[in-house]
Design a protein around this nucleic acid. Structure first.
Lengths: 201, 201
DNA sequence: CTAAAACGTTAACAAAAGATAAGAATTTGG
DNA sequence: CCAAATTCTTATCTTTTGTTAACGTTTTAG
C-alpha cells in the first residue's frame, strides 16, 4: 500500500469525527508522517515519554505491562484504530506501558509537537480541538465499559461477552493475551473454556 | 452557599481546563443551572437517557449498577468533580448506571441541548470544544489507570494502593462500597484488611 | 529443514474469593 | 429517644483462581 492510499483510508475514517474541508485537510496532512512498524517493534515503551499518536492503517498492536518480570497484556488495537501511550502523550510524563506491533504494521502518525502547532494554528485550531474531543470521548466510553465489566462481572461472564462482541480479538489474538485482557491467568481461561464446553453439552 | 459563590468555585476550577474571557463567561454561564440534589436522590438512572452533566460544588455521589437485584458501586465523585452517565450523555442512548447523591449536594449543571447550542455558537464553539476535549482526556486517563489496576494488580494490591492515594474515598465511603469499587465483595475486603493488619504486626 | 520457542491443556495443590449466615456495633430516621 | 436499618466482622463451606510443572502441538526463526 502506498502513502496516498493510506491517507485516503485515514481521511475516510476521520469523517466519523471531523469533516475537514480541502484547505484544512492540506494543512492537517502536512503534519502527518507514515511509519512502518515491524513485528515485535515498539511504538511506545515503559519508562519513556511517548510523544506521538498513531493510526493503524494495516496491522495490529498489543499494550502490555511488565510486572514481576512477566508481561501482562492489557489492550489491543487493530486497523482503523488509534494507538498511543495516551497518558504519557497527554501529560508528557514517562509512561508505564509497552505498545508493540503484533505483525508488520503500517501507521500514520503525528507528534505532540505537531498537534500543538495545529492547536495553535488559527486555521486548524477549532477542528483539531473537536477532533481531540471526539477521539477522547470515544475511548473514554470504551474504558468506562471495561471498568464496568471488571466491577460487575465474573471472569467467565467477561469471556462470554467477548465471545459475543469481540470477534476480532478472539480471532487474531492468542489465548494467553486474551486471558490477561480479561484479568485472569491463561490457565484459568483454559479452565473456563472447558467449563463452558461441558455446560453446553 | 449562594449561586454566585458556587459560580466562582466552578469558574476557578475550570481554569485548569479553559480560560474564558469575560464575554465568553457571560455567554457560558447563561447556559448553566443550579440544582440541589438531596441525599439518595438520583442524578441519573439505569434505563433512562441522561441528558446533562453536573459539577459538584458541594457533596458527593456514587455510581452503581444493579445486577441480580444487588447494587454494585463502581465509582465516586466529590467536590470539584463532574458527574454524569457519560456514555448516555455522549451517545443519547439510555444508560445502565445509577448516579445517586450520598449527601445533600449542590450542583451546577448544563444539558446536552445547552452544550450543543454552545458548540454551535461561533462565540463559544472553540472554547467549548477545548473544554470538552480536556475534560474527556482527564477522565480518559482516570479510567485507563483503573483498567490497568484491574489487569495488573490483585485485589489486595489495589486496596494497598488506595490506602496511599485514595484518602477521600477511604474517609468518606463505607467499606462495602469501596469493596465493590475494587472489584470484590465486602466480606473479601474485610479479610484483606485483616491479612494486612496481621502482616504489619 | 530443524531446533527452539511459543501455545494450549491438564493435573495437583495452595491461596484467595464468593455465598451465606450470625452477631455486635453504629447510624439513621422518624 | 428508640426501633430499624446499616455496617463491619467473623465463621463455615464451596467455588474459583493462582502456581507450578508436565506434555503434546504448533509456530517461528535462522
Amino acid at each position: 500500500m502506498d502513502s496516498s492510499a493510506a491517507l485516503r483510508i485515514f481521511r475516510e475514517h476521520l469523517k466519523r469525527y471531523v469533516d475537514f474541508n480541502e484547505a484544512e485537510w492540506i494543512l492537517f496532512s502536512q503534519h502527518l508522517n507514515f511509519a512502518k512498524l515491524k513485528k515485535k517493534h515498539y511504538f511506545a515503551e515503559s519508562g519513556k515519554v511517548c510523544n506521538k499518536v498513531g493510526f493503524i492503517v494495516k496491522g495490529s498492536v498489543r499494550y502490555f505491562h511488565i510486572k514481576d518480570g512477566e508481561d501482562i497484556t492489557g489492550y489491543f488495537s487493530f486497523e482503523n484504530e488509534f494507538l498511543s501511550s495516551y497518558k504519557s502523550y497527554l501529560t508528557g510524563v514517562p509512561g508505564h506501558v509497552y505498545v508493540q506491533a503484533l505483525e508488520d504494521s503500517l501507521l500514520i502518525t503525528f507528534t505532540r509537537k505537531d498537534m500543538d502547532e495545529m492547536l495553535n494554528d488559527p486555521m486548524l485550531a477549532y477542528k483539531m480541538e473537536r477532533f481531540g474531543r471526539l477521539i477522547a470521548e470515544h475511548y473514554l466510553i470504551c474504558y468506562e465499559d471495561r471498568v464496568t465489566a471488571f466491577v460487575t462481572q465474573t471472569p467467565e461472564e467477561r469471556y462470554l461477552e467477548l465471545l459475543n462482541t469481540g470477534r476480532e480479538i478472539l480471532q487474531r489474538m492468542p489465548q494467553h493475551y486474551i486471558a490477561n485482557y480479561l484479568g485472569i491467568t491463561p490457565v484459568s481461561l483454559s479452565r473456563i473454556r472447558k467449563r463452558i464446553l461441558e455446560t453446553v453439552k
